[in-house]
Design a protein around this nucleic acid. Structure first.
Lengths: 311, 311
DNA sequence: CACCATTATACTCAATAGGAGTATTAATTA
DNA sequence: TAATTAATACTCCTATTGAGTATAATGGTG
């Protein structure tokens, strides 16, 4: 039953979704004029995949990678390179505080909403959704011959893009991208397909890199809700509004200011530094710093089962 | 900046944590007298990793795999095989409804609590924790020379095993196993280490398979809280108590019966079949079936940010 | 048959979390 | 000086959640 593992020609590639925040905008590190995510080799001198990735990023950006998390391992057939060589790509999400020390051209930080304009709901519903996406998706669902397929498509549109009474769920970044891909509204194609005529606004990427980016954004949006990872992207000290803007940038949604503050200090995530922010307009705000201890103090595992406390 | 990927000698291996429920006990498929998880080859005729895994499991167990999810990709140095050949292992979690059609010996379903006896809190705190684990972990933390290290160890013990006022969190299966590993309380060792003298109760596995199993259990315990995956393990129709027992088996905790029922029907996850269960004692219960539609109807993405509804 | 054990099911209660809004304070800028 | 921009403090209301009480419907036992 235990078969020997195949050992044919296989190439391992590491892909990284490296995220930073600049001026309250979520940035992702890209190459080749924004068409690729950084990809590194899997070098055998590194004991683990993560240390290999860290070393590589540090060398490239001259800044330490704060938080690293594995995203997914892809080995789809269409990723096979020439010569029947198989590519297995392992992707990571990395959060870093500082920007790359700019060289002449190449690696560039790009606002991730340039790739996913429909994901930015910070100023209300992204106009693109109602104006372009929904009409075109509806046309796609109506074009289905099989009535069961039609119903299925309608329901997926409803769930993912919040048509009808369902409301927008910011976590479904990947599902939405995949729906658009299936409906043929994005220019990315498999090698056998024809390029599409009229793609949606939003920059594309080569290979499946935009899908990997969507995976990273989705993971991060889900994560900030139960783990204090935002702080990996913040400067040492910050005001509560800055923190709120950071979360909003990642989540792509506006937050209720007063309640956001209530949440933050209920959780004991931050402490006052004693200093006051110097800024342009408005009442000056207290500066806070992240209480690193809480990562150790608390378990951070959400529960939604009706447990019995008295075990 | 884009370096060519390394292509040296690499072996890809698939590992599967296959879970089923029998008689309200969580079972996992094992090989070699329980010492290994099933491992399959990465065969290049399959278009994706998942289809390869599905095909392999179906062929072995003669039952379809319901839900499949990628767990993690490991490529640690100590997994390198002889001859400098590097092993990359990609692990999956799979849920299946039926048991394997038994052959003469080999693959066997085993209760996963045989590997992790301290994870079963269905009848109150697992006695092993207070009786053996905590004393030995405390000895380990006190043995630390550096006071900072000592504090760190104490805190990790507190968070993961619920010493002091922190309470037990069933999701931390992997963290607990790793803590026990670090403290040298489990027999698994890296090739360079000496075998330990007096391991904790609980079956060990070869290589890092028990760690992979811990990853799978942890993922499943987290998942059942926000996705209706339990139903993949249930028979076509069931009573609410059976469903509760299933969740309890996975979570390793007792649930509050009335509130469990409230939760289930609030969510509209099930519908009555009209039939009534025939059983030994007590008032007969209605039989229910899973409403497959809900998977499509709802998004299932938890939110914990203080959002503004009126965007 | 009366009674008990066992399970199912229906409610009630209290505490808490979460979304939303009002009011007040403290700064800068026009 | 007034208008603007933020910060901060509260209040309200509702939904969720942990916990417990009460009642109903079975089979088994003396």
């Amino acid at each position: 039953m235990k078969l020997p593992s195949a050992t044919s020609a296989i190439t391992i590639e590491l892909n990284a979704v490296l995220v930073a925040l600049t001026a309250n905008e979520p940035q992702v590190l890209t190459l080749e004029d924004g068409a690729l995510l950084p990809s590194g080799p899997f070098e055998s001198e590194h004991p683990t995949l993560q240390t290999g990735l860290r070393a590589w990023v540090q060398q490239q950006t001259h800044h330490p990678l704060g938080y690293v998390e594995q995203l997914y391992t892809f080995a789809d057939r269409y990723r096979a390179a020439e010569g029947g060589r198989r590519i297995v790509s392992i992707s990571y999400l990395g959060l870093t505080r500082e920007r790359l020390s700019r060289g002449p051209r190449d690696p560039e930080w790009r606002n991730w909403y340039r790739y996913f304009p429909w994901e930015d709901w910070r100023n209300g519903p992204a106009p693109l959704v109602a104006r372009e996406i929904l009409p075109r998706l509806r046309k796609w669902s109506e074009a289905a011959g099989d009535p069961a397929l039609k119903r299925d498509r309608r329901q997926r549109i409803e769930v993912n893009f919040g048509d009808g009474k369902t409301q927008w769920n910011e976590d479904l970044v990947l599902q939405r991208y995949e729906l658009l891909y299936e409906a043929g509204l994005v220019p990315e194609t498999t090698p056998t397909q024809q390029p599409i005529a009229d793609p949606l606004p939003g920059m594309a990427m080569r290979h499946d890199h935009r899908r990997i980016l969507a995976t990273g954004i989705a993971r991060l949006r889900a994560k900030i809700k139960y783990r204090p990872v935002v702080f990996e992207l913040m400067p040492e000290t910050f005001t509560l509004l800055q923190l709120q803007r950071a979360v909003e940038a990642l989540a792509g949604r506006p937050l209720h200011k007063q309640n956001f503050r209530r949440l933050i200090d209920q959780q004991g995530l931050v402490e006052e530094t004693g200093a006051i922010s110097a800024q342009a307009a408005g009442r000056p705000a207290k500066l806070y710093r992240f209480r690193r201890e809480v990562v150790l103090e608390r378990a951070f595992g959400g529960t939604k089962l009706p447990l019995s406390r008295a075990v």
